[in-house]
């Protein structure tokens, strides 16, 4: 499972980096969205998958999955939501101000 997940994560990263490099601001934001999925899955995968019960002590299991990465990822998900929405609104405002979503046209002047 870990090997499979590593490959899946690699593909997610590839796609999101490819989206980053595109000219459309919308695609860049979709890239960040996918990238956060990739990172979350990566964190979970690195801590060995499916060893023991969910980290709830009232299940009375012998072993539990590592709760720490889960706590990390939980925070990361919420932060990623904040960041994505921030970027999204920034794109929205940019479009309203400049009437374009093309990053090539949005670049600053050369002597800045």
């Amino acid at each position: 499972m870990e090997v499979l997940m590593s490959i899946v994560i690699g593909i997610i990263f590839t796609v999101s980096v490819y989206l980053f490099l595109s000219r459309s601001i919308i695609r860049v934001i979709l890239g960040t969205l996918l990238l956060s999925h990739g990172v979350h899955l990566l964190l979970i995968t690195m801590s060995e998958l499916q060893r023991g019960a969910p980290p709830l002590l009232n299940l009375d299991a012998d072993a539990y999955t590592d709760p720490l990465p889960q706590a990390l990822v939980l925070t990361a998900i919420v932060i990623a939501f904040g960041v994505t929405s921030f970027l999204l609104v920034m794109a929205y405002r940019t479009y309203k101000e400049h009437k374009t979503d093309d990053l090539e046209e949005l670049r600053g002047s050369a002597d800045e």
């Binding site: 870990e2 590593s6 490959i7 690699g10 997610i12 590839t14 796609v15 980096v17 490819y18 490099l21």
Partner: peptide, 25 residues
């Protein structure tokens, strides 16, 4: 170029993930 760079990042992440798992076990 975009394609090469993004695939390179993806492959690198996969390798890091695999190595981290191997190291951990």
């Amino acid at each position: 170029i975009n394609l090469i760079v993004s695939i390179a990042v993806g492959v690198m992440i996969t390798l890091v993930s695999l190595s981290a798992f191997a190291l951990g076990s």
